[in-house]
Design a protein around this nucleic acid. Sequence first.
DNA 1: AGTGAAAGTGCGGCTGC
DNA 2: GCAGCCGCACTTTCACT
Lengths: 156, 156
Amino acid sequence: MGSEVQLDAIDRGILNALQRDGRLSNVELAQRVHLSPSACLRRVKQLEEAGVIDRYVALVNPKAVGRPGTSFTIINLERTTPQVLAAFEQAVRDVPEILDCFFVAGSNDYLVRFAYRDAEDLERVHGEVLMHLPGVARANSMLVLRTVKKTTGFEL
Amino acid sequence: MGSEVQLDAIDRGILNALQRDGRLSNVELAQRVHLSPSACLRRVKQLEEAGVIDRYVALVNPKAVGRPGTSFTIINLERTTPQVLAAFEQAVRDVPEILDCFFVAGSNDYLVRFAYRDAEDLERVHGEVLMHLPGVARANSMLVLRTVKKTTGFEL
DNA sequence: AGTGAAAGTGCGGCTGC
DNA sequence: GCAGCCGCACTTTCACT
């Protein structure tokens, strides 16, 4: 897929701009990167088809939809056979409260991110959702007290 | 800001659709949520102005821009005076390699996410960037071996 | 008064040269 | 890089409740 595509300075400028504002009109984007609209559009389409630009999304304010809290939880499984891992991962995908889940090196742990509504909801998700995923031995939550920095893209 | 806005079922439908595809045209969005284009556009504008929709962004493929690796690092500071925290956080904001940084409860640690190019780059970022941030005592990296789930929004 | 549908206008995406 | 058509965003207006 989108591997080993060579990007020049203009491509990087396009990507930086669209990562900040995915609804930039082509004409405005063109003059920011000093290109004619048609040439700019060609590059954008090419970046989309090459898979460099994965997709465009709207970002919603967590507070505005009643999910102000964020927690990262390190989940340790009792056993780490392929079957146990597969069952756990499928369950994770089916739980809407879980936003991200990563399998990390070191001690065969998962790192899970979720958003919660309030203290009661946090307790529910931690205790009734995470702890009841198949194969879980321990779950160690790290509550986010303050978000220092949060990005959705890369500085190119 | 965007707090305590009441969302009905149609608003949630709009948000779910735009979180999947932020470039949906208003007419297509309208028929998905069974509304006329003008009524739909009014709601979208209102959600934007209320801050429920924060912004629209393009998501780029990390592999395509040469940053295939992800690492989460727990950073522990030597001292936790306000001055030390502030200096650390400002440094974090100035380092482009660091994508996210959260101050987490428990032991006054930070959780930091960054993307790296290869093993050599990982070593450089961990050793030369993170460890040289002001006030760092220890940095414990968790390498992501596999991304099980990754979302940019909420199921509403 | 607040919400939804229908029509007109201009800008911008997109396919030719 | 330039000129075309065409579609969509956006406004206004009207109908409903």
